[in-house]
Write a protein that binds this DNA or RNA. Sequence first.
DNA 1: ATCAATGCAAATTTTTTGCATATCA
DNA 2: TGATATGCAAAAAATTTGCATTGAT
Lengths: 136, 136
Amino acid sequence: MSKSNLAKRASHAGAMITEQRQLVCRIMERSHDHPDAEQVFARARDHDPRISLATVYRTLKTLSDLDLVITHDFGDNRTRYEIKKEDHHDHLICVASGEVIEFRDPELERLKKKIAKRLGYELESHSLELYGRPKS
Amino acid sequence: MSKSNLAKRASHAGAMITEQRQLVCRIMERSHDHPDAEQVFARARDHDPRISLATVYRTLKTLSDLDLVITHDFGDNRTRYEIKKEDHHDHLICVASGEVIEFRDPELERLKKKIAKRLGYELESHSLELYGRPKS
DNA sequence: ATCAATGCAAATTTTTTGCATATCA
DNA sequence: TGATATGCAAAAAATTTGCATTGAT
């Protein structure tokens, strides 16, 4: 049950760890969907009703600046957040249900780096979203 | 100098073509960057100062519903629009300058379809953004 | 003539910010 | 203690919408 301990990593990276940040970190560790700020806020408020939405936004920004959290845009105008894991994965969004499916593909990862290199860039980050319709 | 004639295609797809929509279509045909709604509005207003931002939004929405225009999110909180061409391409965003570079890669296209299929989906659309730092 | 699109301004939605206060190191 | 984070409410920014009017077919 060892958690990734996001808060500890954030602290190690120089961020001050307050009770609220601790809480947001714990929530991000336990969220296996891709919540937006409002959802993180709702979950946080369940544990501590005194936390504010502004703090949630600020904390998520801080974590994402530290590269510990990634942001996504799945086409509905709101930013979704996800804890960054060691292994990169991408997302397929079901156009029928909106469900988000994570997948990994090493060939894809290789190809992305190769393309960036070809264009004269060092790949820093990347995001791929596939939008698909379930094959009955 | 044959244009892609976006307006004609929109009309063919059943959209009513007004002067404003004509104008937005012409602008999208001539824009080779990836403008946001505000930029399209500014360009439109140069030709016809009476057009409104709401109409630009509504027209872009209509065109994108008709699959004649694609939307992008490059990480700054605004939706960017681009006319949809026959051949799919993806984007590399320079993290240093914000510049957006288009690229094409057939292997990538094949791989995307393959992955969707593997997951039990028919690929409907997809977007890949690479964020890279220029190799000095 | 009829139905849909427009303009305008107001309303929503998402995210950010200023400032006085509370909290961490 | 001294610097930084928080909460609150107000501000910004992006996008949508209601409604009276205009315009397309």
